[in-house]
């Protein structure tokens, strides 16, 4: 009675068609089309004509100093932001899991940045980082640290972006980790309590192992998210990717090629390279997580 039949298949297609049409036009088709465009040396997006089929765009991008810089910046950003924010979020989630009064209020406060518009809150950060009037330099000044040109000194532009990136990603991770910790079977903790296990031991022997699949999963999506950092740069720097491009990320580079330099084929090639990088890391991390994670 409930076997798949052509009639039910037809009915299912009716239910699926609104979503499938949109997905076909705006996800499936552009996926192939953009890869196709990336192989043309010259491609007219208005006439859909191209010439010079080959790997020229890829060679050009890989030899472009700005791309190498973007790659370097994005790598540093990712390598710093992901572990730091995961550790801080984990620590915060453990604290929020304490059985004490007021934790609900703290949760509400900590989760707030999750919904933020990064362009808007970027303005606040811009002002906090302001070398003359910014509160960060004033606080650092109290400790005898000289004025730092956070947003104008090439040495500090990437650190400023990293600070902004850590802040903006924390709320999501705290929410997920807290939910994960609260999902761990209470009996483990009760047993630890009876045995008078120390807090640190409880954390390393119960919380960490039980949470490891989630930590790896969040690690993967944060890693990939960090590789795609873009709006943070706009929020902090506006019309340029920091002094001397020092805060330029791969995605910024892609968009800059696309609408700044008006080079859709090269932008397409750069975005395909980004996709391949993401793909490699996804597989590496998935493999690593299979080996080490305790399920």
């Amino acid at each position: 009675m409930f076997e798949p039949r052509w009639k039910t298949t037809l009915k299912a297609l009716l239910y699926l068609s609104p979503a499938l049409i949109v997905i076909a036009v705006f996800v499936i088709y552009p996926m192939f089309r953009s890869v196709w465009i990336s192989f043309f040396k010259d491609y007219n997006i208005f006439k859909h004509t191209g010439s010079g089929f080959g790997l020229d765009n890829y060679k050009w991008v890989l030899n472009d100093g700005r791309f190498i810089l973007a790659l370097k910046n994005t790598t540093i950003y990712t390598i710093v932001v992901v572990p730091v924010s995961v550790v801080i979020a984990l620590f915060t989630a453990v604290l929020l899991n304490s059985k004490m009064k007021g934790m609900k209020l703290f949760e509400t406060l900590y989760f707030l940045p999750y919904i933020t518009n990064l362009i808007a809150i970027g303005l606040a950060f811009k002002f906090i980082f302001n070398s003359t009037y910014g509160i960060l330099n004033r606080i650092l000044g109290l400790f005898g640290i000289d004025t730092i040109m956070w947003l104008n000194d090439p040495k500090y532009s990437l650190p400023a972006l990293i600070i902004f990136g850590i802040w903006s990603g924390l709320a999501f991770k705290i929410v997920v980790f807290l939910a994960g910790i609260q999902g761990i079977n209470k009996q483990y903790y009760q047993a630890a309590k009876i045995d008078n296990t120390s807090r640190w031991r409880t954390f390393t022997k119960i919380t960490m192992p039980m949470l490891s699949p989630m930590i790896f999963y969040i690690g993967i999506i944060s890693f990939i998210g960090a590789l795609k950092t873009y709006v943070e740069v706009v929020g902090l720097y506006g019309n340029n990717p920091g002094p001397a491009d020092t805060a330029m990320t791969i995605v910024y580079y892609v968009y800059d090629l696309f609408y700044g330099a008006n080079e859709p084929p090269r932008a397409a090639a750069a975005s395909v390279i980004l996709f391949l990088i993401i793909l490699v890391f996804t597989f590496i991390q998935l493999r690593a997580s299979k080996k080490r994670v305790q399920y």
């Binding site: 996800v27 996926m31 953009s34 890869v35 995605v251 975005s271 980004l274 996709f275 993401i278």
Partner: peptide
């Protein structure tokens, strides 16, 4: 397809929608 970065899609989608 969720793995695909939206940057790849945007280039063609711009042509589709604008042109």
């Amino acid at each position: 397809t969720l793995m695909i970065p939206s940057q790849i899609l945007i280039i063609t989608n711009y042509v589709t929608v604008a042109v």
